[in-house]
Design a protein around this nucleic acid. Structure first.
Length: 228
DNA sequence: CGTCCAGGTCTAC
DNA sequence: GGTAGACCTGGACGC
């Protein structure tokens, strides 16, 4: 059960918005039943049938895209620093595209210290504002195919194979594996393999079909769930 | 102090 | 289509 508390009575319209945001953040629209059936007798993953597999998303696709760009090619400490700065800019909430589009380059460089990512983020925000880019249309309920969604994500500046796979997991497309400098060594450790190319890893998870990426992620994060 | 690299991507061959 | 080199930043590490 999911309970949402508010400090006041919500108007009908606000309540609808809150429901939509919660549905999006917890990926309540995802149907993982086929995946759970798939892992019924899977020694590595059957534990996940208890309800695992819904990665926490942001209220908007835009926010997930920008956050993910802030994870690329830097230490995790840098990611949290950049995102903390963005939330400060937004006055405690993640800044919307309009605010980011009209924020000066100098802020991205000197305050958020986002380096080369700053212009990428601004360009994406500007395209959302001027209507050239509709990121929210990438949500699975809008009917675009997985390949089409991936293609559109890869077209964004700063979004490559890793970022696209990561964002797609958050959207509810579970095919692509998130391969980066954390998942690769973690896979080696857990599988007790000495080395494994990306192709080898993909082959290992190909049997999960369109849930291959989700299976890979759950395989890697099993210990996170045991703690809880 | 210089080099390397962290939850990669882009450009130019 | 596949692969070097460059790229902001800052923390870790060797010298």
């Amino acid at each position: 059960m999911l309970q949402i508390a508010a400090d006041r009575r919500l108007r009908a319209r606000d309540e609808r918005d809150v429901r939509a945001i919660a549905t999006r953040m917890f990926r309540l629209g995802d149907n993982l039943a086929p995946f759970y059936t798939m892992i019924e007798n899977d020694p590595d993953l059957q534990w996940a049938r208890a309800g695992a597999g819904r990665m926490l998303a942001s209220p908007t696709v835009f926010e997930d895209v920008i956050r993910t760009i802030c994870t690329t090619n830097c230490a995790w400490s840098a990611t949290t620093r950049m995102i903390t700065a963005l939330v400060q800019l937004g006055g405690g909430a993640f800044p919307n595209p309009s605010l980011l589009a009209r924020t000066k380059d100098a802020w991205f460089a000197d305050v958020a210290r986002m380096g080369y990512r700053g212009p990428y983020v601004r360009a994406i925000a500007a395209d959302v504002v001027n209507g050239k880019l509709d990121l929210e249309a990438l949500l699975p309920e809008h009917g675009l195919g997985e390949d089409e969604v991936e293609e559109r994500l890869l077209a964004l500046p700063g979004v490559g194979p890793y970022a696209a796979a990561h964002i797609m997991q958050l959207l509810g497309f579970h095919h692509r594996l998130i391969l980066d400098s954390w998942t690769r060594p973690t896979f080696l450790k857990l599988s007790k393999m000495k080395r494994a190319s990306d192709t080898t890893i993909r082959r290992r998870f190909a049997r999960y079909g369109r849930f291959a990426g989700l299976a890979f992620w759950l395989y890697l994060t099993r210990r996170w769930h045991e703690e809880a």
